[in-house]
């Protein structure tokens, strides 16, 4: 389903915060702050997760010279049960809050809703984004890190990072959201939670295709189509799917993936990065800054999410996946 935003809500300010290990990221110079402590001085990983979200939102408000009272909505989500890190951050922020769960696609689904609220005139300033903290998410979905379980080469590394954007009225000097596509939930029967990239690629393909079709565009109309966390293997699958259409080989260069690039070629991170904070921290730092400098004129950000729970995969259920997209132009 493609939604057009004729008033072109703008990204007024961004804040991206990351953990100590993310200093290794190729995007590290674009982040606003890198913590030396993976728990942000808190007692537990989950409390650190919450603190990280607050810090990112504080940076956003500081950049825009706003106080918490000035912000109308806080739209965010994470991957922990019942999203307590985000809920607890919202308690401290004291901004009207709706928790959103689209797994790792929340970075974009939150911006779509923020843009809708802005378009309706219901919101002057809305903060949208997502976050993930490695240790907390590993415990949630796989094994506690203390267990030291081995991971296969297709596994991806959940990032410790948060990315938030302030969405408001159109400003011709800033990146603006012109359209969004809410993805369907796709399921090709993949049951391996250590191979999410492969499971999510068809969802990304479907969302990109629907968006291009409804907008009467080709992939060449974009300077960049960046998926969230397909990883190295998932990105290959996505490119292969587009190679079967009429897209030429050199045109496939337009596709990039935040997760595949996040940690560079470091093999310690297997197939690349993942997590709700992966796409959020790249979109709302590197991409926003590149749009502002004019390197990109039109980009399609396609955040991908695997909608599983530890219980669903233990019960042998396959992994349903989704992808949401926003089209951003400069000015």
């Amino acid at each position: 389903m493609v939604i057009l935003f004729p008033s072109k809500p703008s990204i007024l300010a961004c804040g991206a915060v990351a953990g100590p290990l993310e200093n290794k990221s190729v995007f590290n110079s674009y982040f606003d702050s890198i913590s030396e402590d993976e728990r942000w001085g808190q007692k537990t990983n989950e409390q650190g997760h919450s603190k990280m979200i607050q810090e990112a939102c504080d940076i956003v408000m500081k950049k825009a010279d706003l106080k918490n009272l000035d912000v109308d909505y806080f739209l965010s989500g994470d991957l922990v049960n019942q999203m307590t890190p985000t809920n607890f951050a919202a308690r401290e922020l004291a901004i009207s809050f709706i928790g959103l769960f689209s797994a790792c696609a929340t970075s974009v689904s939150s911006v779509i809703i923020a843009s809708l609220l802005t378009e309706l005139g219901a919101s002057e300033y809305a903060i949208a984004g997502a976050a993930s903290q490695h240790n907390a998410i590993e415990r949630q979905f796989r094994y506690p890190i203390d267990y030291g379980a081995q991971k296969p080469a297709t596994a991806q590394w959940t990032v410790t990072a948060a990315g938030y954007a302030l969405i408001g009225k159109h400003d011709p000097k800033l990146p603006s959201i012109v359209a969004g596509t809410v993805g369907k939930v796709m399921d090709y029967g993949d049951v391996n939670p250590f191979h999410m990239g492969g499971a999510m690629a068809p969802a990304a393909y479907d969302t990109i295709n629907s968006h291009l079709k409804k907008r009467h565009q080709k992939i060449t109309d974009y300077d960049l189509i960046m998926t969230g966390d397909l990883g190295k293997i998932g990105l290959k699958i996505l490119k292969a799917m587009f190679a079967q259409t009429d897209a030429k080989q050199e045109e496939l260069q337009v596709f990039r993936d935040a997760g595949a690039e996040y940690y560079g070629e470091d093999e310690a991170f297997q197939a690349g990065a993942s997590g709700a904070g992966c796409s959020a921290s790249v979109y709302f730092s590197y991409i926003e800054q590149q749009l502002k400098t004019g390197r990109f004129k039109r980009v399609l950000l396609v955040a991908t999410g695997a909608l599983l729970s530890p219980m669903s995969f233990q019960q042998g259920e396959s992994i349903p996946c989704t992808a949401h997209a926003i089209e951003i132009t400069m000015g």
């Binding site: 290990l21 993976e38 490695h134 240790n135």
Partner: peptide, 9 residues
């Protein structure tokens, strides 16, 4: 005695 931590830098 120990507190588990993530991967070192």
């Amino acid at each position: 005695i120990f507190k588990p931590k993530g991967k070192a830098n």
